Simulated scan of single mutants.
Amino acid sequence: MMSFLVSEELSFRIPVELTYEAKDPYAVRMTFHLPGDAPVTWAFGRELLLDGINVATGDGDVRIEPTHPEELCDVRIRLQVGEDRALFRSGAAPLVAFLDRTDKLVPLGQEWTLGDFDEHLEDALGRILAEENAG
């Protein structure tokens, strides 16, 4: 569960599914289940999520930052497509636990050992773009 921040005064909790697949070792996926809408899936770098737990990171469509950089607390995740933005807040602990499980599947820094990533880059980017456009 994450908080969907509609404004400074209004937020509500929504289910968010985090997934990771060894066949796409550099990416994590978050599927947001907003009430009344079809689920929306975003794919972005696993290291971006890891870094964003401790320090503001990301440019462009995905930005992740801790609410209090001096302590492990909550994390804000901002997603943007054109002028449309969505802001979510999650506890850091569930994200750390998720990243720990991904590290057991494919240790950070060892993604390249799963084969010729460059050979499959175009296919991986096509899948990511198709998922984003489907939402």
Rank of each mutant, 00 (worst) to 15 (best):
S90Q: 07
D100C: 03
S90P: 05
D103S: 14
A43C: 14
L114D: 03
L10M: 12
A124G: 07
E47L: 11
D103E: 15
I64H: 01
E9R: 14
P25W: 07
R78Y: 00
D24S: 04
G58S: 04
V96M: 14
G135A: 13
E131S: 12
I128G: 06
E83L: 11
I53S: 00
I53Y: 05
I128V: 15
T67I: 12
L108I: 12
D61M: 10
R13V: 10
D84G: 03
H68E: 14
H68P: 01
R46I: 07
I64A: 08
Q110E: 13
E47G: 06
E47R: 06
D116S: 13
P35F: 11
F88S: 05
D59V: 11
T67R: 06
G52R: 02
K104G: 06
I64D: 05
A27V: 06
G58R: 01
R101N: 05
R127Q: 08
T19H: 02
L129W: 06
T113R: 15
G115D: 09
D84K: 10
D61I: 01
Q110S: 15
H120A: 12
V28Y: 02
G36M: 03
F98L: 04
D84Q: 14
V55C: 12
A92T: 07
P15C: 06
P94M: 10
E8G: 08
L50W: 04
P107S: 09
R101Y: 03
L87F: 02
L50M: 09
T41S: 15
M1G: 11
F44D: 06
R78K: 13
R127M: 04
P94S: 07
D59Y: 08
S11D: 00
E65C: 10
G115E: 09
V16N: 03
I53T: 02
I64R: 04
P25Q: 04
R78W: 08
M1P: 09
E47Y: 03
P66T: 07
M1S: 11
E111T: 08
G45F: 02
I14S: 02
